[in-house]
Computed example of a mutant assay.
Amino acid sequence: MSGARARTFHSQSTAAEFAEPAAGTAERVFPSLAEVLVAARRLQGVARRTPLERSAWLSERAGADVWLKLETQQRTGSFKLRGAYNAVAALSKEERVRGLVTASAGNHGQGVALAASLAGLAPAVVFVPAGAPEAKKRRIARHGADLREVQGTYDDAHHAAEAHAARTGACFINAFSDPAVVAGQGTVGLEIVQELPGVRTVLVPVGGGGISGGVGIVARAMGSGIRVIGVQTEATSAMHASLAAGRVVSPPYGPTLCEGLEGDVDDRGLALAAEVLDGVVLVTEAAVRRAMRRLFQEEGIVAEGSAAVGAAALLEGAVEGIEGPTAVVLTGGNVDGDRLAGILAERD
């Protein structure tokens, strides 16, 4: 996809619409920078402080200094442990004994499963789409969770998890809009600004908006003009479409390599994105495949599709006005071996 075809939503035009919750919408509760700092303390000794490394080939391609935040090296293979553990650690004693349930495309489920184990709680119940990558499903079960597969999409798994919570009283850990989850994901942004204080732009994958919202909260609190740009694919464009509409909408979805970005957003996630993101761009699935291939060829990095969208945006010229330093968050590396082998065998 050429830069001319990239479609961008700039959130400044509608952020004011979300200053207060509309009647009937979810309560507007965003974590503060102070809560992100509390999450960082909770995560010490649990989550890794992942490397931030300069990418020579992406810097050359973008015409600016580009750094990669390697959440591919995080425990469980993705950033999701940060938010999941922080949310579990923030629960009251009464909430903990009720048990945990969540929905996941794979990575959040691993995070919740491990967090429950580390906290000495009963195994978490994790609902996943039956078509989720086998590697992710195996690892969720390996961390001790009660894995339950649901026919259909991520949204079907999400609804099943909510129904389980209503039926049993278990605590539902929302994968993207729980304030404690967002605060935990925000520690990614905290590490970036600490290690790269001159950072001008951060590219972050967007699904429900947890990590992009957390990083955006940190960037806004710094008051230093850091742009936070979200990236989705044309087949996983719920946040892009909802921001453009000024309300939650459910666009048509297509086959995708980026299962971690699939599914609808909710009112709280949308409101946060409108407040803290400077834009959302869309890239093609073909661009994601190329980015996965180039990340492996040039850097030796195994990135799953959802993680590679930021690199795809740079390769395709989808983000205007790139200045360095730019940080690209590679959110995870949990990809089935057969899928990766097929992508690496392709030619540009």
Results as ranks from 00 to 15, higher is better:
residue 287 A to S: 15
residue 73 Q to M: 14
residue 87 A to C: 12
residue 186 G to R: 06
residue 200 R to E: 14
residue 43 L to K: 11
residue 327 A to T: 05
residue 75 R to E: 09
residue 227 R to E: 13
residue 75 R to M: 06
residue 262 E to Q: 13
residue 241 A to V: 05
residue 129 P to R: 07
residue 274 A to F: 03
residue 216 G to R: 11
residue 255 P to Y: 01
residue 330 L to N: 07
residue 3 G to P: 02
residue 277 L to V: 04
residue 183 A to E: 03
residue 269 G to M: 06
residue 317 G to C: 04
residue 22 A to R: 15
residue 291 A to C: 04
residue 18 F to D: 02
residue 197 P to E: 03
residue 183 A to L: 05
residue 342 G to P: 12
residue 336 D to R: 10
residue 179 P to K: 08
residue 333 G to N: 08
residue 189 G to P: 08
residue 85 Y to M: 09
residue 175 A to D: 14
residue 108 H to M: 01
residue 57 W to Q: 12
residue 159 H to K: 14
residue 279 G to P: 07
residue 228 V to A: 13
residue 347 R to W: 14
residue 334 N to L: 07
residue 329 V to I: 15
residue 25 T to Q: 14
residue 252 P to M: 07
residue 38 V to G: 02
residue 320 E to V: 13
residue 34 A to L: 04
residue 104 S to G: 06
residue 267 D to G: 14
residue 255 P to T: 09
residue 19 A to L: 13
residue 72 T to M: 03
residue 341 A to F: 10
residue 308 A to V: 06
residue 322 I to V: 15
residue 24 G to R: 06
residue 285 E to D: 02
residue 8 T to S: 09
residue 226 I to E: 11
residue 316 E to G: 00
residue 270 L to H: 00
residue 301 I to M: 06
residue 81 L to G: 05
residue 294 R to W: 12
residue 77 G to S: 11
residue 94 E to A: 15
residue 38 V to Y: 00
residue 337 G to H: 13
residue 295 L to W: 05
residue 288 V to D: 00
residue 297 Q to E: 15
residue 101 V to M: 05
residue 241 A to H: 12
residue 130 A to E: 15
residue 191 E to T: 00
residue 85 Y to P: 04
residue 143 H to V: 00
residue 192 I to C: 04
residue 36 V to F: 02
residue 133 P to I: 01
residue 282 L to M: 11
residue 80 K to E: 08
residue 344 L to E: 12
residue 79 F to E: 08
residue 22 A to M: 10
residue 268 R to Q: 10
residue 62 A to L: 02
residue 148 R to C: 08
residue 151 Q to R: 14
residue 288 V to P: 02
residue 112 V to N: 13
residue 50 T to S: 13
residue 118 L to W: 13
residue 257 L to K: 01
residue 107 N to S: 04
residue 17 E to K: 07
residue 339 R to I: 15
residue 315 L to C: 02
residue 333 G to T: 08
residue 191 E to S: 07
residue 227 R to P: 07
residue 123 P to E: 03
residue 122 A to W: 01
residue 29 V to A: 14
residue 249 V to S: 13
residue 93 K to T: 12
residue 327 A to G: 08
residue 263 G to M: 03
residue 54 R to V: 01
residue 14 T to N: 15
residue 163 A to P: 05
residue 247 R to Q: 14
residue 133 P to W: 01
residue 34 A to W: 04
residue 70 L to D: 02
